[in-house]
Design a binder for these strands. Structure first.
Length: 955
RNA sequence: GCCUUGGUGGCGGAACUGGUAGACGCGCUGGAUUCAAAAUCCAGUUCUUUCGGGAGUGUGGGUUCGAUUCCCACCCAAGGUACCA
């Protein structure tokens, strides 16, 4: 009987769905295992072959853990808020919810086809109100919390209020806005309610603040840095300006150090940890305060605070540079310099930050006319502004040490500012000297002769003495802007009273997204939610009301922004533990049982987005006692990207003629990409199919070589734009899901990115056919197929396995188990192939070999494994069958020759019985050494023998 | 520039703590089966050779009886990141 994968796969997919084979229970005597794949955004294009790679890997591991006796949680859901559906809505008017629903349906069909062991009863969708209710809930918890640096954790805002009532804010050490004024307990009690709220807002973990953003007036929205190209929007090419807007922000900076420290505790890929480390960007140094020299003695003393990692070079300061946006610029600029400074500031404002960063080479700046006083020498230091100083990092001001920093050096050279040398024995006539390790300070008063380390320590203590600075740790990480001027996102559970934000009471969540007429900003420039006619909160009725004009004093406007894409994905892994709970985000029992994710697989592109924000929220949830672990994913693996192989035709310029790949150099040609599905394995193009594909090829002439049109190939990211997307559907249709699963694993190491290429899929497909054949003689003992369903199958061969059979099996068990534990899924496919070839050659019919083999294969190729399992006479799914136990004894041979080479010339063979004891082996090796000594006149220094392995002679 | 990862046949890739490099698959070559094809099976396939061998894991050194594996320098590729003071 042939391997009918269509019938088999259909049968078992239905069986699993009907019997809820993979339903996970929140109570079990078994140990738990939580395996998670990053949930997808359901795009209109459907799944391509790159998506399932990580899912297959997670699925193999989940199924393996199930065989190993774990209670496995393996959920799937959809990150279903997002921009594409909204843009589609803007173009067509179709509600994003409908687009999303359709896309999800298609995703689900495709996922089901691949035979994943997901517990679909736990599916979540971030755009579902029952889900985003809890996203809103977390937002409220963040709003109601502050970060206490003394206890180093988030606490309820009430503890802060208590501190204020007791002693004002002077003793409070909190993560808060820099411009928070000092006040006493008396002040506090004297503040109005609104004043109190304003103060508290500066401490909350999510807060409203004026943030400088990239605003695109034409699109009516804020753009991320990477949405801007050359100062104009990527879409449409509209101008973009820097603008201050009131936005919600998340105080992730409060967690900077803990996010850094936490990386040591988790098993994540090094490159990913490194990008998070860089992103957080911790640097140690000092904050130094310079007094501005004022011509007007009436004026209050202005000070400039700078951050430096090289306080040891303070005597090398010859000027200061402020970012053009710095608050003091307008204040300190002298009348003579005003025109020049204003022009420069204006010119800089027009450039985006990214633009400025890209333009590293040009030196530019303007003198403000003002001077600062050196804290030690009391000398006057000119204050410049320059766009090489970024307002967003540090304090937006630097003390420039041209001899020790190349940028300062270039600036000083360009504007003829003196470059004092403060390094012992270093020539700085050509470039700055920045090597900390070999620094010896000179010309620096009390720092002379000291190393970088000594001088830094000394100067910080001196600065502290004179009140001009402190040692400081600075982070590159910035608070995360949390507002988006979009429709298709979570609404904020926020309404405004007298301009101050108020949280909607938890019991009235979710605050549902309203219907709108159009998905664009309103004419007055408000976000799309401003189009909703019923968008206000009635506190008394606790409802969203339909008309703001009704005569009721208690109706307040709601927040019109929505949350960003990462909001919904920052806690979904916890919600999976108890996704239908309407009373709480999850029950205590559920979180106590599942704890955290044991294995998380997904793409590395989320390194500084989702994977950082979700760690932040988890730490917050931990601080507030909602979750037991402050890192939610112990082990994380980045699966590599599967790239596409685009097909290229060569159009002869100015014609509608196309030259084949080998002939293209004879003409001037343009490269055009065509649908890869029109090309076969040997790069031959189906010309007729191409004519039908797009009208421009209808009348085209093709210049062939050897009667064929050969295309060029280019490996690049799979994208609709390059026509190189390969869908799994066609592969499933032709070879089956098991073949696809095996093949995606066989393609190469999980973490490596690799081009998709169907050339090798016949190899794994024929393996499955061989596997089927290995078992089929047994079924053919039955005159007919076993009865349908689980019952009644006759048990097959009870033949005793041979020693050879057992050896083959246990070799396979050992390798497959090691491979799965190490996530080297690619090599187990080879192991299976070898195993089946050997057992076929051995004419193995023994049930005690074939049963465990089916279990070994089942994580990889679950459908065929289930079918074989049933035919072997089992009534239960193979999913819970215990993983075969490896036994060393079956691998042991009576003796084997092992080669050992000496001096790289002569070869000897040492024959060692492998089942001999350690003492015996050592005795044998001693004897061998003696022989060597006689033969060679020298002895290896030490000999180690491992049973079953080659002899190691270690130097 | 900095950080990270990698570099092995025609191709994808194996090789666990240093121990017969190239497993397994694709492709290719030859053969069997077939009227023929598909499918299947068998044999061969790193390069080179005067058939004894010789060379060989990006390049050049080093440690070692022995190096794809460890150390140093360099080259190349991919990914991340950047006037970060």
């Amino acid at each position: 009987m042939n391997y009918d994968f269509r019938q088999i796969e259909d049968k078992w997919q239905k069986y699993w769905a009907k019997n809820k084979t993979f339903k996970a229970s929140n109570t079990s005597d078994k140990p738990k295992f939580y395996a998670l794949s990053m949930f997808p955004y359901p795009s209109g294009a459907g799944l391509h072959v790159g998506h399932p790679l990580g899912y297959i890997a997670t699925d193999i591991y989940s199924r393996y853990k199930r065989h190993k006796g774990f209670n496995v949680l393996h959920p799937m859901g959809y990150d279903s808020f997002g921009l594409p559906a909204e843009q589609y809505a803007i173009q067509t008017g179709q509600h994003p919810a409908i687009t999303t629903e359709n896309n999800i349906k298609r995703y689900r069909e495709q996922l089901d086809q691949l035979g994943f062991s997901f517990d679909w009863d736990r599916e979540v969708r971030t755009s579902n109100p029952q889900y985003y209710k809890w996203t809103q809930w977390i937002f409220i918890q963040l709003f109601n919390s502050w970060y206490n640096k003394k206890s180093d954790k988030a606490e309820d805002i009430s503890t802060l209020v208590a501190l204020f009532e007791k002693a004002g804010n002077s003793k409070v050490e909190a993560a808060c806005d820099d411009d928070t004024p000092a006040f006493t307990a008396e002040d506090w009690s004297g503040f109005s309610e609104k004043e109190k709220q304003e103060i508290l807002l500066k401490y909350r973990l999510t807060y409203l603040a004026d943030t400088e953003v990239n605003w695109c007036p034409a699109l009516g929205t804020v753009l991320a840095n990477d949405e801007i190209v050359n100062g104009v929007s990527e879409r449409g090419g509209h101008p973009v300006i820097r603008k201050k807007m009131t936005q919600w922000s998340m105080r992730i900076t409060a967690y900077a150090q803990r996010l850094l420290d936490g990386l040591d505790k988790i098993d994540w890929p090094q490159p990913l940890k490194d990008s998070q480390t860089n992103w957080i960007g911790r640097s140690e140094g000092a904050s130094v305060t310079f007094n501005v020299i004022s011509s007007d003695s009436e004026k209050s003393q202005d000070t400039i605070e700078v951050f430096t990692t090289r306080p040891d070079t303070i005597f090398g300061v010859s000027f200061m540079t402020l970012a053009p946006e710095h608050d003091l610029v307008a204040k300190i600029t002298t009348p003579e310099q005003k025109a020049e400074v204003d022009a420069y500031v204006e010119a800089t404002a027009k450039r985006s930050e990214r633009d400025r960063m890209a333009d590293v080479k040009t030196v530019s700046g303007v003198f403000t006319g003002a001077y600062a006083e050196h804290p030690f020498t009391k000398e006057s230091i000119p204050i410049w502004i320059g766009d090489y100083v970024l307002a967003s990092y540090g304090t937006g001001a630097v003390m420039a040490v041209p001899c020790g920093d190349q940028r300062d050096y270039d600036f000083a050279k360009y504007y003829n500012i003196p470059i004092p040398n403060i390094f012992e024995g270093i020539d700085i006539s050509e470039e700055a000297f920045a090597d900390k390790a070999t620094t010896i300070i000179a010309n620096s008063d009390f720092l002379n002769g000291l190393s970088y380390k000594e001088a830094t320590k000394k100067v910080i203590s001196e600065l502290e003495k004179i009140g001009h600075g402190v040692g400081k740790v600075n982070y590159r990480l910035r608070d995360a802007v949390f507002s988006r001027q979009r429709y298709w996102g979570e609404p904020f559970p926020v309404y405004y009273v007298d301009g101050m934000p108020q949280m909607i009471d938890e019991q009235h969540l979710p605050l549902e997204l309203p219907e709108v007429e159009k998905y664009l900003p309103t004419e007055t420039g408000e976000p799309p939610l401003g189009n909703a006619t019923h968008w206000a909160w009635d506190v008394e009725q606790c409802t969203v009301v339909s008309n703001q004009l009704i005569d009721n004093k208690k109706v307040f406007p709601l927040e019109l922004n929505t949350m960003p894409g990462w909001a919904g994905s920052s806690q979904y892994f916890n919600r999976y533990m108890d996704p239908r709970n309407e009373e709480a985000i999850f029950s205590k029992e559920a979180i106590d049982y599942w704890q955290d994710v044991d294995l998380y697989i997904g793409g590395s592109e989320h390194a500084t987005g989702h994977l950082l924000y979700s760690r932040f929220w988890q730490k917050f949830m931990f601080d507030r006692g909602y979750v037991p672990k402050d890192e939610y994913a112990q082990k994380l693996i980045n699966q590599g990207m599967i790239t596409g192989t685009s097909a290229i035709v060569y159009r002869i310029s100015g014609t509608n003629k196309y030259a084949s790949y080998g002939l293209k150099d004879e003409y001037t040609t343009e490269e055009l990409r065509v649908d890869v599905n029109l090309v076969n394995v040997s790069n031959e193009l189906d010309v007729e199919a191409l004519r039908d594909w797009q009208p421009e090829y209808q009348e085209a002439d093709f210049i062939l070589e050897d009667g064929k049109y050969i295309v060029g190939r280019e490996v690049e990211k799979m994208s609709k734009r390059w026509y190189n997307v390969v869908n799994p559907d066609a592969i499933c249709e032709e070879y089956g899901a098991d073949s696809l699963r095996l093949y995606e694993m066989f393609l190469g190491p999980l973490e490596q990115s690799k081009p998709w290429n169907t050339a090798g899929i016949t190899g794994v497909h024929s393996f499955l056919k061989k596997l089927w054949k290995l078992y089929s003689p047994l079924f053919d003992l039955d005159t007919e197929r076993p009865p349908a369903g689980r019952a009644g199958s006759r048990s097959v061969t009870e033949a005793e396995p041979t020693a050879e059979n057992l050896k083959t099996l246990h070799k396979t068990i050992k390798k497959v188990e090691e491979d799965i534990e190490n996530f080297s899924f690619n090599t187990s496919v080879s192991t299976f192939m070898i195993c089946v070839n050997e057992l076929t050659a051995q004419k193995c019919t023994s049930k005690s070999i074939l049963e465990p083999l089916a279990i070994l294969v089942s994580p990889y190729a679950p459908h065929i494994a289930e079918e074989l399992w049933e035919r072997l006479g089992h009534n239960e799914s193979i999913a819970e069958a215990p993983f075969p136990k490896f036994e060393e004894k079956y691998l042991v041979e009576s003796s084997k020759e092992y080669p050992i080479s000496f001096n790289g010339k002569m070869r000897f063979k040492l024959e060692l019985p492998l089942d001999m004891g350690k003492d015996e082996i050592e005795a044998a090796v001693m004897a061998h050494e003696k022989t060597q000594e006689q033969l060679q006149g020298r002895t290896p220094k030490k000999v180690i023998v491992v049973p079953g392995k080659i002899v190691n002679i270690v130097g």
